[in-house]
Nucleic acid binder design. Structure first.
Length: 281
DNA sequence: AATTATGTTGCGGT
DNA sequence: AACCGCAACATAAT
């Protein structure tokens, strides 16, 4: 589920509550979801929260690092005393039902607040890593789409080197990180390029257009607090708003916002792909 | 009731 | 090496 905008939304909110907190207890409900020794975490304090690609990096004063990948259905939900007291909080009931059947790990802080890692499908994980292990993990991902190093020149170079479908290329985190299925479909629609096009058949101006659209959809996603299609939630249980303004994702049978054509859904590289066959050439 | 779908990514095979 | 297809898993919808 979560793509770059959703992860960024979570990171920004975590950054506003976690730094300075001391870990007092951890519960691992599902072994597969947590890799590391929980005793290296207990008693340490959080210094920073950052994001790289779709990874959430929580840095500890001890020098260790907590790395979280939400994969398809992961959520990080933060519950503190103000939520417990209710106080008209719109999602208070939902928050107070935690831990739930989908809670895989919970982290308790010394002030009594809790961070819950929920993950229905158990593809996501939390790992405890040394600085060098963290570097190795980060090195597996190319820079984020929205970083300046992903320039028109860089993208054009990579696009020319492969005949894979362009949709597969923009989803490839070895080329650039951050786009997932929703934002990739939307970027291709905005750039009016067919997801089936072989990458090396794009013109320079098409490649520029597609990179621009890719950066723009991710920025818009961040501004709207991510897309809540099914599982994604903010750390306080609220939904994002991007799904209300999607270009094509989930809009099968509805009109294309570019040309009024009818949006269709086909499977490309195993993923449901929404696009307008009229204007996406 | 069985089949198909789901936002990610890593692996094993060609 | 590049590329493709599927598996990891739970659940909801057809």
């Amino acid at each position: 589920m979560p793509e770059l905008p959703e992860v960024e939304t979570v990171v920004r909110r975590l950054r506003s509550v976690l730094p300075g907190k001391e870990v007092s207890a951890i519960k691992v409900y599902k072994q597969k979801s947590f890799m590391g020794d929980i005793y290296e975490l207990i008693g340490t304090r959080i210094t920073q929260v950052n994001r790289k690609a779709k990874l959430i990096h929580i840095e500890l004063k001890s020098g260790k690092n907590v790395l979280v990948h939400l994969k398809m259905t992961g959520q990080l939900i933060y519950v503190d005393e103000s939520v417990r007291l209710g106080g008209g909080h719109p999602t208070a009931d939902w928050l107070q039902a935690l831990p739930s059947t989908h809670t895989r790990v919970s982290i308790t802080f010394s002030d009594g607040s809790n961070l819950y890692f929920n993950d229905q499908r158990i593809f996501g994980w939390i790992r405890l890593l040394s600085p060098s292990e963290l570097e190795n993990e980060f090195a597996r991902y190319a820079p984020d789409v929205i970083e300046e190093s992903i320039s028109d020149e860089y993208f054009w170079d990579r696009v020319q080197r492969t005949s894979r479908a362009i949709k597969v290329v923009i989803l490839d985190s070895k080329i650039m990180s951050g786009l997932g299925n929703i934002y990739a479909c939307d970027a291709l629609n905005i750039a009016q390029i067919s997801p089936y096009r072989k990458a090396n058949t794009l013109s320079k101006s098409e490649a520029d257009r597609l990179l621009d659209a890719s950066k723009a959809v991710l920025q818009k996603g961040i501004e709207l607090g991510g897309a809540t299609i099914e599982h994604f939630r903010h750390i306080d249980g609220f939904s994002g708003n991007y799904q209300k303004e999607v270009a094509v994702y989930g809009r099968e049978g509805e009109p294309c916002l570019n040309c009024g054509g009818t949006i269709i859904k086909e499977k490309i590289a195993g993923r449901g792909t929404y696009f307008c066959p009229n204007c996406q050439i």
